[in-house]
Write a protein that binds this DNA or RNA. Structure first.
Lengths: 352, 352
DNA sequence: GGGACAAATGAAAGCGCTGTCAATCGCGTT
DNA sequence: AACGCGATTGACAGCGCTTTCATTTGTCCC
């Protein structure tokens, strides 16, 4: 119960009447110490309230038991599953996960990587594939296992698991196109690289059918959110009152759009169809339930963590595939259901 | 660009033709080193890609520049603001925030505190006031500045900023009572201690008017969520079809309730009034907007961080008040608006 | 112009722990 | 009875850095 100096290995050793090394072993490799001593030492640890100094331990052993994870946001419901999955794999293996939130800033990310490297993690997991050149160099030269997640690239730093956001965006739009929509709006906020790719997918899919997107896109560099969704939708609606569907870069915006429709008395999906992105919890609860593009967030986290675990603790072998595209799937729900009558008044669309 | 061994202070020193001490100073206290050398050293740092080893630095200086923060959840939109506020204060001061998520488990919290202590943080911020005895002892004996947030207690470990959740819960219910409601349900999930206190406040407020709460409460030990809100609401409704208002322990449940009402064709607030807790983003966007109890999350984070900063970097003085109740406020919105006609059919309530 | 003093740099020690290797102790082997 | 081996334990050095404290150098003052 000493308040001042924290007790050290040496204190415990003295108390147990053994040498410090033995205490260290009793803690790190109990099987190497006789049961007799182990008990004495455990008792001493308990009474002295000894907590090993991780700094000293890591410095001496060059094993920090830390894996660094960089996420662009915590606000976003998206990263909870992901982080949870990573922890579920790593924590039981005695590895601490150090999470740094860089708030969608590549510069902050660069700093965070540097900071994190100073803690000598045994591996790093970073979100996305759009690190700055310097970030890439830092990560590469670190010689550590690196996993880039959430997105895919032809030129990964090391390991890579994610999905093709342009393809996912295009798929969402084609889904609406197949349903007969032609005037499809796109809402986007907090335009991180992945949201930008989804947007690009939207443009591509529209372009393939020769459909113009002029006036159909509303974006905001600021943070995303449900309120923002309503605002962006209103903007588009003012410019293009004839839209019949909206693809939003995330579910928050989709929910905001849904509410704005309710507010304006627009029926969903009859007047406006909505498709979001991520498949957050509220999508299935909404009225109507929101159609959305579902991604394998937990799976990406698990895979990343397991690959790392194998590399630093297990065989040291890299996974068979060092590059994985986990794909995506469209959850078909009420917000895009085809309940419209063929000859509805506001409708007037090509036969495609 | 060495991939193997990372360069050390000594490497930089050799390269710059100075002693290691000088390099250390050039980095930590640039003003103590002549401009000439500083430049040479900076150059060497750059070419060698030197990143100080935080472990060694912290070990030698006994200053880790780390503040530990324990949160019960990341899923919950509630903790983003809070964490953001803490980082906004601490990061600019060169302090790293180590966040551990204990998923609403007092046992995990105990472990997390121990782990964190091993990293020798200079202070800790913990959520709530319901730590286990052992946790309390660990924190107290650490001799570090400790801040308990989000809740208030008469027996704080050290500093304490929060609000009285029982009072907030009671206030929410009285708000509904004042509006004439008598059959008020309460929904609660993931019953952490604070949610439990809000529930207690509900019971107290009801009891004050001699109103029975039998059959009016639905709870679930599992995680909260929008979907869960709908489920719990349905449960209560089955048992007590005559309820006219619902107080939920958080906004997710409130949103789920709102959706469930929409699904069932119950008008909000005419048939069912809803009041949530936290004032998350979507509350004002919802249709109707959700009345909710708003709490000062950012303020609590800022205060905690600033108090700590002052203690460990500044004057070392404790804040004037080491105990702060930040209170709460009810955001009056559409989901509880008094649009009901005096003689509505389903209504039949006392004059109170 | 010599001594005092401030500024700039370096040498040595050590933060708390772990890896390595040596020492010790039993006990079985031949 | 001498030897050897495995199982335990301890001594020592050092991880990479910072913190004294000492040394060197340049500068100022009377």
């Amino acid at each position: 119960m000493d308040v001042r100096r924290r007790s050290t290995l040496a204190d415990v050793a003295r108390r147990a009447g053994v040498s410090p090394v033995t205490v260290s072993r009793a803690i790190r490799h109990p099987e190497m110490v006789s049961e007799d001593l182990r008990k004495r030492i455990d008792a001493a640890v308990l009474t002295l309230n000894y907590i090993p100094n991780h700094l000293a331990s890591a410095l001496a052993s060059t094993r920090t038991q830390i894996v660094g994870v960089i996420v662009p946001s915590l606000t976003n419901g998206v990263f909870d599953d992901y982080l949870g999955a990573i922890q579920d794999v790593l924590n039981p293996a005695g590895i601490q996960v150090l999470v740094l939130n860089v708030r969608y800033s590549a510069i902050e990310e660069e700093k965070a990587i540097q900071t994190l490297l100073g803690y000598h993690p045994e591996a790093m997991i970073v979100t996305g594939v759009d690190q700055t050149e310097r970030s890439r160099a830092l990560l590469k030269n670190s010689g550590l296992p690196i996993v880039q997640t959430m997105d895919v690239t032809d030129t990964p730093i090391d390991l890579n698991i994610g999905l093709d956001h342009a393809a996912a965006g295009a798929a969402a739009v084609r889904y609406l196109l197949d349903a007969g929509h032609r005037r499809i709006a796109h809402l986007t906020a907090r335009t991180d690289p992945r949201a930008r790719r989804r947007h690009a997918g939207y443009e591509r899919a529209m372009d393939e059918l020769g459909l113009s997107t002029k006036g159909l896109v509303a974006g905001s560099p600021g943070p995303s959110g449900v309120v923002k969704g309503g605002e962006l939708f209103s903007q588009v609606l003012a410019r293009a009152p004839d839209i019949t569907a909206v693809f939003t870069c995330n579910d928050d915006l989709a929910l905001g759009t849904l509410f704005e429709c309710q507010r304006r008395g627009l029926r969903v999906p009859n007047d406006i169809a909505i498709i979001g992105f991520n498949d957050l919890d509220f999508c299935v609860a909404a009225v109507p339930p929101l159609t959305t593009v579902s991604t394998e967030r937990r799976h990406m986290g698990t895979w990343a963590a397991e690959a790392i675990l194998e590399l630093i603790r297990g065989s040291g072998k890299r996974p068979k595939e060092s590059w994985v595209d986990v794909g995506f799937s469209i959850k078909h729900r009420g917000s895009t259901e085809m309940v419209r009558t063929p000859a509805a008044p506001r409708r007037a669309r090509a036969k495609a």
